[in-house]
Design a protein around this nucleic acid. Structure first.
Lengths: 153, 153
DNA sequence: ATAATTAAGGACAAATATATCCTTAATTAT
DNA sequence: ATAATTAAGGATATATTTGTCCTTAATTAT
């Protein structure tokens, strides 16, 4: 559904939010190893999320790394998609038509318009904090089993 | 959501199903112009759907082209995704985890598992013929407004 | 038979996404 | 101040997707 960039971003943000704080920042090495994503590539994706200045914070230098403020943890999962400009994956026409709407629908429109709001809600009505709460349940995971075997730089 | 290949394929198949029959085949030029997709690229995508030998039929030569049998029109929209191997777009883990299931869920799993069956149903429980029936309603379209201005080869 | 038409398919080109590497800048610890 | 650590960011590489072009094969009309 989403691009790899976005998958990595979602996992990385959740991991950072979970295992860090302003006191205990977490480095890209740790993050990328934990969520099974290539280090340098993940770094680039996270840069996009630090620039907006309202989701991830980062600090250079020793004991530096990434972290989320308590305020930032209240952000919805949808916000991550917005910043990465991947909302369209959910919102656009299933057949790829530019002009697909209630007045000018594609043949799938009337069915998809029932599902689209549920998909949006799944991200909008779920904050990062909500995910963190779930993650206290040890059966819920962010680790990518397959990729974790590969050595990333 | 889907790749351009798949978007083109979905639109092209529907157009061919609608405007052709064993008597009146339709050429790639007409199809690609109608649905606003690049001609040669669309041709390649349709080849995948003719090879399986059970969805699109094609005939070379004058008055040749593509068509669907009445039987083929009973095929579900999901079948198109299956042949193009794009089912995973709907079925795989939202966070891209290899191992994401009820026993080993990602933090989005329990929400997405309510929506996934609806997405599958949207394609599975909708035949090409169903779409054709809708297309008799003139407000429903397959034409891509933006792309149609571009000259494709 | 010949010419014309049309899909199949190979080869290649361009664009985009993914991934890596290296240098710089910022910060901290000593 | 100096050295060490870590993110930022530029440059480049690789892979994949998208798109084009040309030749071949199949079919039909004359």
């Amino acid at each position: 559904m989403f691009s790899k960039s976005t998958e990595y971003a979602l996992r990385a943000v959740l991991y950072i939010a979970k295992y860090s704080s302003a006191d205990k920042k977490i480095g890209i090495e740790t993050v990328s190893t934990a969520v099974g994503s290539p280090k340098s590539f993940t770094a680039k994706v996270l840069q996009k999320l630090t620039k907006n200045n309202c989701l991830i914070n980062s600090v250079s230098g020793p004991n530096g790394g990434f972290f989320l403020t308590e305020e930032a943890k209240k952000t919805s999962m949808l916000r991550i998609l917005e910043i990465l400009e991947e909302e369209h994956v959910i919102t656009k026409c299933v057949l790829g038509l530019q002009e697909c709407s209630d007045v000018n629908p594609c043949p799938m429109h009337n069915r998809y318009k029932l599902i689209k709001p549920l998909l949006i809600d799944m991200f909008e009505n779920k904050s990062i904090q909500d995910v963190l709460n779930e993650l206290t349940d040890s059966s819920i995971t962010l680790i990518d089993v397959q990729d974790i075997r590969i050595t990333h730089k």
